[in-house]
């Protein structure tokens, strides 16, 4: 090695910084789709939904995706998505996006109005579509609902759905008056959803009634 080559190697060492980059980003990213039930009396739980969304905004990292959608009489529509974002890989930009996201969902949840029917299945199909598009490594649908589906006569949802590699978390599943009379109705409802979600290919089904327990789920993923 002559002296010129040595100087060149010095310069090469300085340029070694350029070696960083070109990594695998998608498989490590998370995507979360939050379905917020706004039907009937459950619309009163909107405050809790805001806490959940804020928790997710604080937990998700740059590069992750988040969408909040409402469960209405018919929920299989992009119009039902209140806010969605794939956060920038730069932390500062991601923080700015999170602020904007929070403002948007906050505004919606303050003005939420109850709907006559509840289409959870449509929301799940819409959520699966969104999550698969993101290409994230970990995909989660959070259903903030009492899990009581109530479709109108025209809407058709009694067909198999696909939720491959998506974990579904039913959050804040409140008990209805009828559940209090006969708890088997509540347990049966949850069991039916469990079977349906598993049959759809979901990786996991979980019911969480205490919002604080979300911490363990997202901290470990």
């Amino acid at each position: 090695m002559n002296s010129k080559a040595l100087l060149a190697s010095l310069a090469a060492a300085a340029l070694a910084l350029a070696a960083a980059g070109c990594g695998d980003s998608r498989s490590h990213a998370q995507a979360v789709y939050v379905l917020v039930d706004t039907s009937g009396t459950y619309a009163r739980e909107a405050g809790k939904a805001e806490r959940v969304i804020n928790y997710l905004l604080g937990t998700l990292r740059p590069g992750d995706s988040l969408a909040v959608a409402k469960v209405e009489s018919r929920s299989f529509s992009e119009k039902d998505i209140v806010a969605k974002a794939t956060f920038d890989t730069r932390p500062s930009q991601a923080n700015a996006q999170k602020r904007a996201f929070r403002d948007k969902t906050e505004a919606y949840l303050k003005s939420v109005q109850g709907t006559a029917h509840t289409d959870i299945t449509g929301g799940l199909i819409q959520g699966a579509e969104f999550l698969n598009e993101t290409g994230a490594g970990t995909k989660t649908i959070i259903v903030f609902s009492d899990m009581q589906e109530d479709l109108d006569k025209v809407t058709i949802r009694n067909f198999p759905i696909r939720l491959d590699h998506i974990r579904v978390i039913a959050l804040n599943v409140t008990k209805l008056n009828s559940d209090n009379i006969d708890p088997r109705r509540y347990l049966g409802r949850l069991d039916a959803w469990h079977k349906r979600v598993k049959a759809a290919g979901a990786s996991e089904w979980k019911v969480i009634n205490d919002i604080e327990r979300l911490d363990g789920i997202f901290a470990s993923s």
Partner: peptide, 28 residues
């Protein structure tokens, strides 16, 4: 460094590109 090279890029399952870039700077 994650602000420069992105926080969501991973070289291996647990090793972020930003961490490698920081390490490279220190080694340089």
């Amino acid at each position: 460094m994650s602000e420069m090279v992105g926080a969501s890029d991973y070289l291996t399952a647990t090793l972020r590109t930003s961490e490698v870039a920081a390490l490279v700077i220190i080694l340089v």
